[in-house]
Every structure is written in C-alpha cells, then in structure tokens.
Design a protein around this nucleic acid. Sequence first.
DNA 1: TCAAACATACCAACCAGTCGGTATCGAGTC
DNA 2: GACTCGATACCGACTGGTTGGTATGTTTGA
Lengths: 204, 204
Amino acid sequence: MSTPKTDARTRLLDAGMQLLRERGYDATRVEDLCSAAGVTKGAFFHHFASKADYGVAAAQHWTNITAPMFAAADYHAAPTPLARIFAYLDLRRAMIAGAPAQFSCVAGTMAQEVFETQPAIRDACGVSIAGHAATLEADFAAAIAEHGLGDVVEAADLALHTQVVLQGGYVVAKALDDTAAVVASIDHLRRYLMLLFKQEEKLQ
Amino acid sequence: MSTPKTDARTRLLDAGMQLLRERGYDATRVEDLCSAAGVTKGAFFHHFASKADYGVAAAQHWTNITAPMFAAADYHAAPTPLARIFAYLDLRRAMIAGAPAQFSCVAGTMAQEVFETQPAIRDACGVSIAGHAATLEADFAAAIAEHGLGDVVEAADLALHTQVVLQGGYVVAKALDDTAAVVASIDHLRRYLMLLFKQEEKLQ
DNA sequence: TCAAACATACCAACCAGTCGGTATCGAGTC
DNA sequence: GACTCGATACCGACTGGTTGGTATGTTTGA
C-alpha cells in the first residue's frame, strides 16, 4: 500500500468486511485488521475507541456498502411488485459464488457470535438486517394487496423470512462446506412465493 | 459440586452446550468451561488434547443429546408422513422459548464462527446438522411419492431446507433480539409445505 | 501554528497449554 | 486380606506467547 487511496478508517472497515466473514469477530485480531488495511495499531485506536466500537462501525459500514448496491440493482426495474421480488431472489441466487466469506453476511455472522456478549454490535447488526428486509417490504405489500392475501400473510414477515432463508443458507453452507445448500433453499423460497401468489404457471 | 454425579468429561461437554451457544467458540474460555463444570484445567486437558479437540467433541455431544430426544419425540406417532412432518414443525416451533442460548443450535453457532479457521470442528458441526436433516428425509420422500411431486422437489433438499429456515431463524432472532422472527419463519415454512403438498383446506 | 492523522514502542492482562504431583481403584501376588 | 503395581482421573500452580489498549512521538494539511 504505497499510496493509500482512502483514509485509514475506511481502509480498516473495508478490510474488516472480508476478515470478519472469514474468521468472525473474536478471531479477527486488531492487528489482522491493521495489516490487512496497511496501517498500524495507532491508526486503529485513533479512529476507534475500542475493538467493540470498531465492531459497531463495521456493521454500519456493511450497511453503507450493501444498501446502495441493492438500491441501484436491476431488479427494481421489473414491471410488477412480484416480478421485482423474484428478480431480487435471482440476484441473491447469482451472488452465491466462491467461498462463504465472499457471499455471506457480515451482520449475520457477527450477530450470531456476539449477540449476548456485545449488545451494541448485536443491535447494529440487527439494524442492518432489518433495514435490508425493509427495502423489500413495499413490493411485498403491493403484491399481497394485488393478490388479496391481506389476511394470510404480512409484508414485514415475508420480507424478514427472505432474510431468514438467506442467513440460514449461509450457516448451512458453511457447516456442510457446500454452497448448493443456499442455492437450493433460495429455490424453495422462490417456489413458496410462486405457490403463495398463485403463479403456478411459472413453476416448471 | 460436592458430589459430582457424572465424570469430568461429560460435565465439561454438558456445560459447553450452554456456554457455546451463549458466547460462541472463541469467546468461551477453557476456564469458563472448567468452572461451569466444576473441574480444573488439569481435568480439561486430561480429557481433551486441545480446545479445538473439545470443539469437535462438543459438536458430537450435541448430536448425542439431541438425536435421541428427537428420535423419542411424539411426532413420529402421527399417522401419515406429511402429518409427521407438520408435527415435527410444531415441536420445533414449541421449542422456541426463552433466550436464544436455550433454543438455538450448538452446531450452527459454532460452524458459522469457525468454518474457515477450524475445519475439524466445522466438519463435526456439518455431520450434526446433516444427520438431523437425514432423520426427516424418509417422511419427505414418502410424502413426495404420495403426492406425485417426484420431479418437482427432492426429499433431501426439503429436509435440509427445514434446517436452513431454523438456522436462519436463530441468526435473525439473535440479531433482532426477538424470538418472533423464528416463529414467523417456521410458519412460512409450514405454509410452503401446505401449498406444495396441496393441503389448502388446512390453511386458515 | 494548531489540530487531526497517523506511527512506534511498550505494557499489563489474559489464556491455551504444561508439568509435576496426588487420589483412587482394580488386578495380580503371596 | 494386606501389599504392591500400574493405569486412569484429576488437581493447581506456572509459563510463554498473544492481544487489546496506551503513551509518546512525528507528519501533514489548512
């Protein structure tokens, strides 16, 4: 890193997105983050009061990175709410490639580990996951209204359920060392929504 | 612990079931396990070559505890394969109570954290999760055959999908500090299976 | 010239793992 | 049935490397 493009704080947070997903919060040492970012420990503690403080910032950084990416993604261009939801699932499915550290979720990984020991980090992870789920809510609400499913399911529940399937897929993919688990579960989720919204004709 | 009922090894493993789910693998210190089990570090390293060795044993112990419990559970008494599956989901739903450390999964929690740093532990966790999923496979296979869905879904995939939903529910419940997330997702999974196996009459 | 942004050296606490020791018990021996 | 012997179970003080965090500079930019 001869010529740092960005400031140390951003580089530390960027480096964390990879390391935290690989090793989790506890096993990621402050010095690991520093060397990956090409800075020293002095810089780390200049920008973050503690490792826990960094954890909170990392969860927020994860949101700051992913939110604009999803907001700018193609799937919003689909013509109907339901089409947008299926296009979203197609995107999430296509994102499953390489190692789990590449496609899994920083917030989910950290939350699972520190939910009891680091409430501040857990809350930041919760905000990240809930916030992303919320971006799906309007399309689900419109699809539910369109199909008269108002007293069968709730938009917020369905939106969160998509995240549950993704997070669970990551866990199982890691445990079985096989990405097929996530992909298969996304397909099951897709089939559920197909059936629920009575799109049988699209089921192969 | 004036009169230890069981040997130190078992007490250490039993203590880990709680601590590992609360704090994860890394944040659970060997001395935490020892004091929770009422033994000393000498006893720990007498029975386990290393902390990682303990992690592998803990994943196996988790299987040893849960497998007989599920094998002996009521839901196997239901009359049809599909009824048994729904009864299984009822049981899993009823098990969601108290703190995540009470109802979540030792294997899923550990695997998420150490999948890259401790392959032996990850594999043991994978065996535990896959083994439990396998216990559902026969009923799914029978239900699929009965309903002529042989070229729509596969039993193994469906069985694993139930575990994906549960594991994901635990992650989201921890992140949002709200058990409602798991329960709602189990209900979505139940509705999926209802729709898939064309049990619409049972949908409220 | 002042403050923010880094760097370097250092420390105290922690923690996995070690090592010498003791307690207990069953099998053999006479 | 006392006595040794060996093996297993367990104890607890100690250690050496690690790690989060600090104290004290130095550089840079406005």
